[in-house]
Computed example of a mutant assay.
Amino acid sequence: MNNIIKLLERTSALMEGHFLLSSGKHSNRYVQCAKVLSYPEYAEMVISEVVRKISDLDIDLIVGPAMGGVIVAYEMGRQLEIPAIFTERKDGEMTLRRGFEIRKGARVMIAEDVVTTGKSTMETKKVIEELGGDVIGVASIIDRTGGESELDIPLYSAVKIDIDTFEKENCPLCKEGSTPVKPGSRN
């Protein structure tokens, strides 16, 4: 766990500042996993921590929601020697495209970089289930749910990080005159 935190810090993936999250909440820290994943050897290391926790499960397919879950799904699939695909948004709706298929009854693990509220995980779960797949869990590099996600499936993560979040109206950083920046891929 400490090794993962050190890699996040070394690659500037664990950022300090004032951030506007996809949920509309504000935060004083943000994890941009794309920075650590841009180094293939680090991607292999951090994802191997998650793979170790799920390797005994009977998994047929890994599905990662775009953007954050694409590289994570690929590397999990590579390490587990099973196929990995991804969902993506079209007109604001999560969907499966590009000729990807999920066979009926397939045991599917969702792959994420960071799970905060679980919104994209649950959108991906809905797509998988509508196609007849059986979602057995979500595997992520970072669990930053703080126990407040909407997940109804097991969550396996390499590391848990507690990061303060604030409603805009109660944000101490805003009260100090700071303006939040919007990181990440979701508008």
Rank of each mutant, 00 (worst) to 15 (best):
N2S: 14
N3C: 05
I5A: 08
L7F: 12
E9A: 10
S12V: 07
L14C: 07
L14Y: 15
E16Y: 11
G17F: 01
G17P: 06
G17I: 11
L21Y: 01
S22F: 04
S23L: 09
S23D: 10
K25F: 13
H26P: 05
N28K: 08
C33T: 13
A34R: 12
A34C: 09
K35H: 15
V36H: 01
Y39H: 15
E44G: 02
V46T: 07
E49L: 11
V50M: 09
V51W: 00
R52H: 13
K53R: 14
I54S: 08
S55P: 02
L57G: 02
I59R: 00
D60V: 00
L61K: 03
I62D: 04
V63H: 04
V63T: 00
G64M: 08
G64H: 05
G64V: 04
E75L: 07
E75Q: 15
G77R: 05
R78C: 06
L80D: 03
P83R: 07
A84E: 04
E88L: 10
R89H: 12
D91H: 14
G92W: 04
E93W: 00
R97K: 15
R98F: 09
G99L: 08
F100K: 00
I102G: 06
A106V: 10
R107T: 11
I110Q: 05
D113W: 05
V114I: 14
V114G: 06
V115P: 00
V115F: 05
T116L: 11
T116V: 09
G118T: 07
T124L: 07
T124I: 09
K125I: 00
K126A: 11
I128S: 01
L131F: 10
D134R: 14
V135C: 02
V135R: 05
V138Y: 02
V138R: 02
V138A: 13
S140L: 08
I142A: 03
R144L: 09
T145N: 02
G147T: 06
G147C: 09
G147L: 08
S149W: 04
E150P: 00
L151Y: 05
L155P: 05
S157L: 06
A158M: 03
V159E: 10
K160H: 12
D162M: 13
F166A: 06
F166N: 03
K168D: 12
E169T: 10
N170H: 14
N170K: 15
P172H: 10
P172C: 05
L173T: 06
K175F: 12
G177H: 00
G177W: 02
G177D: 05
P180M: 11
P180V: 12
V181I: 15
S185D: 14
N187E: 14
